[in-house]
Structure formats: C-alpha cells, structure tokens
Nucleic acid binder design. Structure first.
Lengths: 335, 335
DNA sequence: CTGTTAGCGCATTCAC
DNA sequence: GTGAATGCGCTAACAG
C-alpha cells in the first residue's frame, strides 16, 4: 500500500526537503531538532526550504523513533458540568506550554464508557489524567500499572493524585450557618460513586454534629444537576430546614429556582450554600459557595504527569467559604 | 538511542506477542485488524496471549504504516463558555463511535494562540474542526489548503461548514417582543470578530426595522460574559428600553442580575431574551431564549470531517425561539 | 490460512 | 559539520 488512503493534501516528507535543499535527510532532521549541531547557514537554508514547501515534521514518525510523542489524555465524567471546563481549560493551556497535545474524553458518568476511552487511549498517550473517575479502585490500579496515570478528585493510595479538599470549606459553611443561627439544615448530595461527594457529606455531617445542628439528608440523586436540586425542594420544605447545603453550585441553583417558584425568599426564608464557585457569581442573589480551584487542579495534574520522578504524591488543594448573598439568619431566631 | 526516554511501563511489542504465541508478527497483526482472515483458533490464541501480556497495538506505528491514525483536532475559543461544552461533548462522543481520538484546543479567544494550536496540531491530525474561529478568512483558507478543515459558525466559501442559523430565532424574538407591545428594545452584542454576532445583530436590526421598533445598540464588549451583561444594564435603563435581547444566555444572565440588583422586575418592568439555550432553563425566572443545537453542530462537524467526498458543504441548522418566563408585555401598554 | 519481505517518516548512531 | 546506514512497531503486498 503505502499511499495514504485519502491524502487530504500532499504533505512533504523529510526526504523531499532534503532533496530540495541539497542536503541529506539527517541534516534536515538536525535542523529541526538540534540546530546548534549544524552550520548556521545550513540551518537557515534548510528551514527556508522547509517553510516554502510547507514541511511539518511528522510527529508519529518522530515518536516512533524517539519513543516520545507528547500526547496525553484527559478523561472527565461530563464536559457540560460547569465544574470541569475551567479544569480542562487550565490543563490544555499548560499542556500547550509543555509541548503536549491533549486528548479529551467524556465518560458521560459511565464506568463502561470510561473503560472504553481508556482502551482507546492506551498506546496513544504517554499519560492519562482521570478526573473524578467513576471506576473502582482496582480498575484504576490496573490501568496505572500499564501507563502513567494521575488522578484528580480520587484518592487511591500509591498513585499521584490532586485532591480538591472541599471538606474544610464545607465545614466552614456549616459553621457559618450555625453562627447565623440556623438549627435545621438540609444536605443535598451528589453521585454516590464520587469521592468528592463522600468527602463533602462527611465534612457536613461531622461539623453539623459538632455544632449540634439537625441535619436532614436528602435522598441522593444519580448525578448532580439543576433538576436534582429542583426535586429536592419539597424535601427541604417538608423537613422544615431553614438552610440547605448542596453538593455543587448547579444543584444549588436548582434549589434556588425551586424555592423561588414557590415564593420562598432566599435568603430571607431559606439560606442556600453551593460548592465549586463555578456558576455562583452568576446567580441572583449571588450564591454563597465553597471555592474550588478546578483550574489549579488541572494545571497541577498535567505537571504531575510530566514529572515521573514522583510516583505517589497526594496534593491537597485547600478551599474556603465564599460568603455572598444567599445566606442570612433564619426567619425566626431560635432561643 | 531506541530506549524510551522514561519508560512509563514496559509495553510489549507485536514481536514479543508473536514469539510467545508461536506465530509470525503478521499473524498477530491480522488477529487484531482482520480476524476474519485467520483461523478462529489462531485468533483466539493470539488474543489470549496478547491479553495476558497486556499488549496494546501501537497506534503511532500503525498509523505510520497505514497512513491513517484517526486523530482529529477541535479548537474552540473558550471551553468555559457554556455554549461550547455541549458541542464538544457531542463531537467527542461521535468521534469515539467513529474510532477517532479528539484533541482539544482552547484558543482563549486569541487569534495568535489559535495559530499556535493549529501549528501544533499540524501533522498530528487527519483533520481539524475550527469552532467560532477568530482567524481571518485568508488564514483559514491557508490552513485548509494543508489539511482537511471543517468550520463551525464561520462562513467561508469553499470550505465545509456547519452554521447555526440563529438569525431566524433572533428575528422571531424581536417579533415576539413586538407582539407583546414593546417599542423600545436594546441589543447587547458579542465579540466583533464573531460570525454569530454579526449574523444575530443583522437579524435583530432588520426585524426591528420591519416591526418599526426603536433599537438601542449597546457598545459591544470584547467577549460575551456575565460582566458584559451586567455592565450594559445602565445603558438599557438610560435608553428607556422595555426589553433587551442579548448576544447569548450568559450575557442575558448578567443583564438579569443587574436588573434584579436595581430592583427592576423581570419580566414585569423589562423583558429579557438570550440566545443558545445553554444556561437558560437554570435561571430564575427561566430565560426566554433562542435554541441553538450546539451538540448537533458538533456531531455533524465530525461527520463532515470524515466524509472527504464533499469539499464544500454549507449545513445550516435552524433555530427557534423558546418562550419561557422572562418576556411579558411592557409595563405601560403603548397606544 | 499463514510466513516472508519491505517500507511508512523520522532520529540516531557511526563514519567521513 | 555532514552523509550513510539502521531500526522504532506495525501493516500490506506477495508467496506458499
């Protein structure tokens, strides 16, 4: 065969450039990879000819020879969940600075699909970033045994991972509500398989107990969404909670909309707290939330992927409570 | 050299599998690419050995030989703009179905950065999808001359492109407002270099003239954002507009927040219309907007990229007005 | 059905 | 400082 099945456009190879420039292929190669090794004039001439011909080194071929091609993969559960885009953006930007190309995978919150993406990327990438993976620990370990894997928001011992520690922020949120005088607080959780969810739930539960608040735990939804927040509103009202803490901002927005639709004032009658600070400034009233630093996590993950010297790091990113306009004292101050 | 600079993990090659299975390398290759060509038992045995060794075909090498590697690139101005994630998600999902791997690029609304991404992807991909490109036509043409390019929301003659025709929806929005009795309408635009923006602006202008509405055009912002909507509110109020049409939903959200902060009721005092329908259902009141079908555009773009037979298609995706709760008659009905 | 041979485009030893 | 030869891992002709 040889012929590209469907040559989009004739792409010159190193040989053609060499011929046109009157040098050997090795010289062309060096002009690109180690110009210092060549006569300045030669380099200039080769580069000129290459530019004129529109020559671009074939990364695949180069990679075959060097063993590195600079491609990495990033898999997220759902690109359309506003938590991920800032992380993706930061990862892509930093990848570019490091001369890396970034494959994006969307698992759609589905473990099977995540496995398939992993399989597709295998042998295509030098490393993989798994964000909020829905896979069981053993599967993650299995994949990590075959290739460099960095985890985000997933705490598997022995693997490099960057964790956004929302526990502190969530605890602060509970504390903030307690200070405001709330005694009845509702918790609207996220996906059960999520590390973030269990971490947040535990923090909220612990702090609530500590501050002697009554915590009403809403039945957990399969995936965090505006709808799951909306659906939880009857539960909140029925429970008589004067404040609700939601798994994330999107869920919190749903709660706010549901409350507004029923004429329940926020924060007059019910206070609302979100998490992630991705959509919070855009709501009205502006949502009190927990900062989340997804962008930082994305950047660090790419960094970690490149640094093979550290096999097992556990980077914890702290978070803070960002008080805005959806939290206030409850309607009737308890004794 | 040969040795991978930093062997993540020893990856077996086709030769090792062949040796272990007691067959030739070609047989191993066939077991993966054209199993029907081989004896069933042989295939089973090879696959078994391969699986045990953890063999994964090296795509780079395969691509070098076949001339196709199945990598495509997708460049967007800003992943964090909620219009793009659904498009990206659909593109990724469809790419996966077609056995393609998708590189993601984020130009950050910057032409220079977009050029750099293009350069990086060159020679790495079989085709490129440029979404809402910020590049001048001639640059796009130049790139299209070197590799297969599909455009989304950019109308360059001679290139395959899929366009979300929001003009119809925007015109319908103006008409809807006119029917409601509005006479003074404000338009808050988006980025000047954007095809979508000029298209929407023209549609709004034309329909406003047709329905004899006074159109107040706000000074255009560099990029569409919550802030640009927020900032436009004084202009809207000063102009005495009873309705505003924003470039997109995010901008509209900013307008709604700015209005709410000033105690101006929506839609009681001022009606608001957005565009894209990406964040609109999540607002309160739910935003009247123009549907946008970004997901469809993403899927079609990947399709078009694969179908090299059609060099110049112009797929127009229609849009509709989605009336929700932010539009109502103006406070005082004009004569 | 399966093994043999050759070459994809490039980076890299060696020689010169 | 530069050219010739070799092999990266794989697939596709061509035999058998």
């Amino acid at each position: 065969m040889r012929a590209k099945s469907l040559p989009a456009v004739s792409v010159p190879t190193i040989s053609e450039v060499a011929a046109a420039a009157g040098v050997s292929r090795a010289t062309v190669s060096r002009a690109f990879t180690r110009p210092g090794m060549l006569n300045g004039e030669t380099v200039a001439r080769v580069l000129e000819v290459a530019g004129r011909l529109g020559y671009v080194p074939n990364q695949a071929a180069r990679g075959l020879s060097t063993g590195r091609h600079g491609r990495i993969g990033l898999i997220v559960p759902d690109v359309t969940n506003p938590f991920f885009p800032p992380l993706i953006r930061a990862a892509q930007l930093h990848a570019e600075e490091t001369d890396l190309c970034l494959f994006l995978g969307n698992s759609d919150e589905d473990a099977g699909r995540e496995e398939r993406l992993l399989a597709r990327f295998a042998g295509q990438v030098e490393g993989l970033i798994l964000v909020s993976s829905r896979l069981p620990d053993e599967r993650i370990r299995a994949h990590a045994a075959r290739q460099r894997v960095v985890l985000v928001n997933r705490d598997v011992e022995g693997l490099p991972r960057v964790l956004i520690d929302t526990a502190a922020g969530m605890a602060a949120a509970v504390s903030h509500l307690a200070d405001l005088g709330h005694r009845e607080v509702a918790w609207i959780g996220g996906p059960a398989a999520s590390w973030s969810n269990s971490q947040r739930r535990d923090a909220v539960t612990a702090e609530a107990a500590c501050r002697r608040l009554r915590l009403h735990v809403a039945p957990s939804a399969r995936r965090p969404s505006f709808e799951s927040g909306l659906d939880a509103v009857p539960f909140v009202l029925y429970a008589g909670a004067t404040a609700v803490i939601a798994f994330d901002d999107v869920t919190a927005q749903g709660v706010m909309a549901g409350l507004a639709a029923r004429g329940v004032a926020v924060p007059g009658a019910v206070s609302v707290v979100g998490c992630d600070d991705v959509t919070a400034v855009r709501t009205y009233p502006a949502l009190t939330t927990v900062s989340s630093r997804g962008d930082e996590a994305g950047r660090i993950a790419v960094e970690l992927l490149g640094d093979r010297t550290v096999p097992d790091v556990r980077r914890l990113l702290g978070t803070d409570l960002v008080v805005r306009a959806t939290t206030a004292p409850p309607p009737v101050q308890p004794a």
